[in-house]
Amino acid sequence: MLQNVFMALSTINDYLSIFITWAFVVPFLYNYACTINCRNKHVMFISLVMMLSYTFSLIMFKASLTLTDSIYLDLVIADLLTILTLVYFSYSYAHANATAYYYLVFGLTFNAILHMAMHYDYVVLVTYDYWWLWGVYGVGQFSSDLIMAIVLIINKDILGLVKIKKFLLSSQLLQKTTQNM
């Protein structure tokens, strides 16, 4: 079943990459229009970063301008540069981080891990036969991109990631305070 999904996704890869790029253009335009008379433009700026990142990645791969010999390694580099840009911008911005920021960092990290796993599997291990990692990559990367684009528009904690982060930070804080007593 997952093999059929992966093979179907690989045949329409060009169309999916254009769709995902447009899926990041729409949130930027939406957030730009919504924040014209607003002080807090954090979501608009991070959606701009995502739109530019995915647009440059699309152009880079369509023009065959690669940094390394592996497309997956290039995608890892692009994801890490986008994460660093988001983190730098968010820490230098005066307002609190939006919910979408955490989803973008988590989604890009997830994508980078998937790209690195595919690089290792395809380039280092030289695996050419389908196995479950390829299906997880195909569905996981597309789903992650789509969730990030949706969260940029609605800016809501739809998967509970921010709640989990707050819980983990509060439990660590409790442990530190009990250790100091």
Rank of each mutant, 00 (worst) to 15 (best):
Y91G: 07
N40T: 09
V105R: 08
D79F: 08
I154A: 01
D129M: 10
Y91C: 05
Y122F: 13
L174G: 05
N40R: 07
T21M: 14
A112T: 01
Y91S: 02
T11Y: 13
C34V: 00
M44L: 10
L125V: 03
L73A: 14
V136C: 13
H95Y: 15
F167K: 15
N111F: 00
D121R: 14
Y103I: 13
I12G: 10
I154V: 06
L161S: 10
I59A: 13
I158L: 09
N155C: 00
D121V: 11
K62F: 03
F19C: 10
H42W: 05
Y103K: 12
K41E: 07
F89G: 00
L65A: 13
S10L: 07
I12F: 15
C38F: 02
H42L: 02
F142W: 05
K163R: 14
A94Y: 13
L174W: 09
D14Q: 11
F19N: 04
L58D: 02
W134M: 15
P27S: 03
K176L: 02
W132E: 11
N37C: 05
N111S: 14
V76N: 02
W132K: 09
S171F: 06
T109L: 06
W134G: 09
I77M: 10
V105E: 03
L48D: 03
M60L: 10
A149Q: 05
Y30R: 02
P27R: 00
M118E: 11
K62Q: 12
S64F: 11
N13L: 11
N40L: 09
T177A: 01
S171T: 10
L159S: 07
A96S: 13
I77P: 08
G135V: 06
K166T: 07
Y72M: 06
Y128N: 15
I153K: 03
H42F: 11
V162E: 09
F61N: 13
Q141Y: 11
V151Q: 01
A98S: 15
Y15T: 14
D74R: 08
I164M: 15
L67C: 12
G135Q: 01
L174R: 10
N4K: 09
L169G: 00
A78P: 01
K62D: 12
M51P: 08
A117S: 14
K165P: 00
D145V: 00
S171R: 14
A149V: 04
L169R: 03
T11P: 06
P27T: 07
N13T: 13
L75G: 14
V25T: 12
K165E: 01
L67Q: 09
L161D: 04
K163N: 15
V76Y: 01
N111A: 07
H95F: 15
L152V: 05
Y102N: 08
Q141S: 13
T66R: 15
I71C: 13
M7W: 04
N155G: 05
